[in-house]
């Protein structure tokens, strides 16, 4: 009986800990959006339109880009690097399992569970900021955004995989993650909409994979681009996925040749 009570206690503590983790998640997700809402409210008190964005559009932009981030971002690189360094890659090399496919499947699984947590959080957030939020979803932009998010998840994962594989060639890859985050932050429109940047930079970013993570789906959401541009965007994104996949394959081939099985 005492043992059973102890099990119940463990269960309660576990559930409580999970609850705190959820509250923490809620906080970590909401805080930057609240900050941006304050910042832009102040900025827009002196001007109605900045870079074609109204205050409501800007707040909607920040809420949705953070939601998209929760859907597409994968941080597999550290795990992959750890597998390589600790020699845990052996089980994948000796078995008929594709490491890349395994990791990608694993990421999708994690994302599905994550979404169950994240969607209620964002629903609360939208309610909290409802006077700013613009609802502008049609069947067309919903379809394009859904396809785009899946492609972004794939592209984000392949990028993380490439950085993770760098552990074959470098001892410490943590700094590469940081660099990737900053590059992505700037070129994807995560920090601010790319349309606020000079046109030359916008033009360059259009041909890189990053802009399709956040800026592109928001352009689609606000109907700021034509159907032709939407389709072109998806094609560019698909081409980048092929390029990143080829890089992954080449790195894997070269890396496994260097791999010493006991860890590097």
């Amino acid at each position: 009986m005492n043992k059973f009570k102890a099990y119940i206690k463990i269960g309660v503590i576990d559930a409580l800990e999970m609850r705190f983790q959820l509250v923490y998640w809620l906080y970590v997700n909401m805080a930057p959006i609240v900050l941006m809402a304050y910042l832009w409210s102040n900025v827009y008190s002196k001007k109605d339109l900045i870079g074609g964005f109204s205050l409501n559009m800007m707040v909607t932009y920040y809420i949705l880009t953070r939601l998209f981030n929760r859907i597409v971002s994968t941080y597999s690189e550290e795990r992959i690097a750890k597998d390589i360094k600790d020699g845990q890659l052996n089980q994948f090399i000796t078995r008929p399992i594709s490491y890349l496919a395994f990791k990608f499947g694993e990421r999708i699984g994690i994302r599905i569970i994550n979404l169950a947590i994240v969607i209620p959080i964002y629903a609360i957030m939208i309610l909290f900021l409802k006077k700013y939020f613009i609802w502008q979803m049609s069947l067309l932009n919903f379809t394009i955004i859904s396809v785009n998010l899946f492609l972004s998840l794939t592209s984000f994962f392949l990028l993380a995989f490439i950085i993770g594989l760098m552990a074959f060639f470098m001892i410490e890859t943590h700094s590469l993650n940081g660099l990737k985050e900053q590059v992505t932050g700037l070129m994807s429109g995560y920090i601010f909409p790319l349309s606020l940047l000079p046109p030359e930079l916008q033009h360059i970013f259009k041909y890189l994979p990053f802009a399709y993570y956040y800026d592109f789906p928001m352009q689609v959401y606000f109907n700021r681009i034509s159907v032709h541009e939407m389709l072109l965007g998806l094609i560019i994104q698909s081409i980048w996925i092929i390029i990143l996949y080829i890089i992954c394959k080449l790195m894997w081939k070269k890396g496994t040749k260097n791999y010493e099985a006991t860890g590097i």
């Binding site: 001892i171 943590h174 700094s175 940081g178 660099l179």
Partner: peptide, 10 residues
Amino acid sequence: THLILSFCAR
């Protein structure tokens, strides 16, 4: 290398 890359990230 880690030192330089971390510096670049910051």
